[in-house]
Design a protein around this nucleic acid. Structure first.
Lengths: 191, 191
DNA sequence: CCTACCGATCGGTAGG
DNA sequence: CCTACCGATCGGTAGG
């Protein structure tokens, strides 16, 4: 459907702008410009700026969750799964084409309560899949404590990378993944 | 000086509001209300809203840095120092009375380039003190890798606590400190 | 530090 | 999806 395509285009343009400048500092006119519309254009497709934000976050969450589900169902070792999860999570935050995922993380506060509630079940599902992975690692003795606090600290370490990681810098995404794993899985071997 | 006192009062009120609602969503009138002034009042003491933000961040950084300097100069073991640093860092983010420090962390992007530049040396100094602590730990064999990437991952784990930690929750600040240390210092003993 | 006010910005809409 | 526009908001200021 043509209408659906236009929505998708707007969502992508908005994701990029929200990520770069933040929700509050993005004008709906900026979004219109980015897709070649006049200032009022986006409101033909979305009721409000908030609805655009919601749509961006839903796309971001949906994609991140899909990747995580797929990894969880693999037939792989607990460590192999964690590596894949960490790698996918970092990619969703740091790769340019994935603006929507980082908007979801960093603009959460800008989304009104109702939108937050509608996305809660997806967020919970995402967390739950990670928690399963950590619990497996604790059970197999490769991590001392795989409880929820450890998971939150891990998420923090990874999410914060958006603040400092640069593709032009010395670390590749794979090296960063390994570094994070080494910190959180000190007893494991990496050859 | 009376003038100085009024500035301090405004800075504290602004810090609280910036933290709770974000810089963009705080009205200068909100700040005025919070200190019992009329809408134009704050501009008698500050040239602009940006100047208020700068003042808040400077206060936050100055205090965090002072605590860190003091800890670094203690006569304590590397692990003891790291624990003190982590504890102080978490306190600066999570304790209510320290809004200024968390504003500095979470609203950095809202500060215009010139303000950012003027605060860079203090930020660098803060990071450098932590780096020394990590290097000591690596040298004494209590951490595998005490390099800059590990430090950034550690900062991330700690800073992210502002997103989820609740004083009404099950963890005390000391327990959270211990948990973080256990993750990052797996070989160390805690009795 | 207040009063009174302005100038610009911006999300959103009517009507086509 | 555009044109034309409005209604409200808000940082900031003159003048005292």
């Amino acid at each position: 459907m043509e209408e659906e395509n236009r929505r998708v285009v707007i969502i992508h343009a908005a994701a990029k702008l929200f990520r770069e400048k933040g929700y509050d500092n993005t004008r709906t006119k900026d979004i219109a410009d980015a897709v070649g519309m006049r200032s009022g254009g986006p409101f033909y497709h979305f009721k409000s700026k908030q609805e655009i934000l919601y749509a961006v976050m839903e796309v971001g969450l949906r994609r991140a969750l899909a990747a995580t589900e797929e990894i969880s169902q693999r037939d792989d070792s607990p460590i192999g799964k964690l590596r894949a999860l960490v790698r996918a999570h970092l990619a969703s935050i740091l790769e340019q084409e994935q603006d929507a995922s980082s908007v979801q993380l960093y603009e959460w506060r800008s989304l009104e309560a109702e939108g937050q509630q509608r996305l809660t079940s997806m967020k919970d599902r995402y967390t739950a899949l990670w928690q399963v992975a950590l619990t497996e690692l604790e059970r197999s003795g490769q991590i001392r404590d795989g409880g929820p606090t450890t998971l939150l600290l891990l998420f923090g370490a990874l999410n914060w990378c958006a603040q400092w990681y640069r593709h032009s810098g010395p670390l590749t995404l794979d090296e960063l993944t390994d570094h994070a794993l080494r910190v959180f899985l000190p007893t494991a071997h990496f050859e």
